[in-house]
């Protein structure tokens, strides 16, 4: 029953619309003494309804890529288009989930979610209804007024997720949102994330350094190498959209993809 409000509203009519188009993107960070190439000639297209995970070790520029798409980092070379228009400044027609939950510590759960509406000047009633729906969807019922410091890490990330989804963005960009969580909570969040993606039909780009997370969540997995950040390979294991921790993890397509990614990232990268 929960899904009805969200469905239809966001499900794109044409499933092949390119949402994000990145072509020959290079990003250099210059300091007085040195120049670091964070991204080197990266090209990537994300289509409507996709769940793209970007996997790579820390320092491969995957977070930078996400921030460039969001328009948060200026000064790149190449082409970055969102919804067909060049990205020149911070994009507001997106949902962004940060590595740390980035919640306002003086606001309760519901008020933190509604910040999105206040900042955008959304219709109050509509926003409140959606917030309540998202609270229910993510299992935060009963904690509407709890302050962030009273919540566990997993719950904080859920609040951040609700906030990122409140305005029904066409694309959700997630920057290692579950990186700071313990393994069990992380699995739980992955299961929920998969369900939310299916129920909302939102296009998701998620950056992670966890191989199982990348394969479990992604309909397409982009593997990146570090310094300079390059796309090494793109995998489409062909797993069904609906995933389940019990069966998906034992699915030969899952294990094969995970093996392949580990191989690409080098033997040093230990599984989580």
């Amino acid at each position: 029953m929960a899904a009805t409000v969200l469905d239809g509203a966001t499900t794109p009519s044409v499933a092949t619309d390119p949402i994000i188009e990145v072509e020959n993107l290079t990003m250099r960070f210059r300091s007085k003494r040195s120049e670091t190439v964070a991204l080197d000639d990266v090209s990537l297209t994300v289509r409507a309804g996709e769940f793209v995970t970007i996997a790579g070790p820390s320092g491969c520029g995957k977070s930078t890529l996400l921030k460039l798409v969001a328009g948060l980092t200026p000064g790149f070379e190449g082409k970055v288009h969102l919804y067909g228009a060049p990205v020149t400044r911070p994009q507001r027609d997106i949902g962004f989930a940060f590595q740390r939950s980035a919640l306002l510590e003086w606001r309760g759960v519901r008020k933190n979610i509604l910040l999105q509406a206040e900042m955008r000047g959304m219709d109050r009633r509509l926003a409140q209804r959606r917030a309540d729906h998202l609270i229910e969807l993510t299992g935060l019922t009963g904690f509407e007024k709890a302050l962030p410091h009273e919540l566990s890490g997993g719950m904080q990330q859920r609040v951040a997720l609700c906030r990122a989804l409140l305005h029904e963005p066409r694309v959700l960009l997630m920057d290692e949102p579950f990186g700071a969580l313990d393994a069990l909570t992380r699995e739980q969040m992955n299961v929920e994330m998969n369900r939310i993606w299916r129920e909302t039909g939102t296009t998701v780009v998620l950056v992670t350094h966890s191989v199982p997370e990348a394969v479990y969540l992604g309909s397409r997995i982009v593997v990146m190498s570090p310094r300079p950040g390059r796309i090494v390979e793109t995998l489409e294991p062909g797993l069904p959209d609906e995933r389940d921790y019990g069966t998906t993890l034992r699915d030969p397509r899952f294990t094969r993809a995970a093996e392949r990614i580990r191989g690409l990232l080098g033997a040093t990268h230990t599984p989580e």
């Binding site: 921030k67 962004f96 590595q99 910040l115 206040e118 900042m119």
Partner: peptide, 22 residues
Amino acid sequence: DPELLEMSATMGASRWRTFVKI
């Protein structure tokens, strides 16, 4: 926290709203 300011930017918030609310 700079991340809060980035978050505010993705919400399309004006400088004034960012000041008042964050």
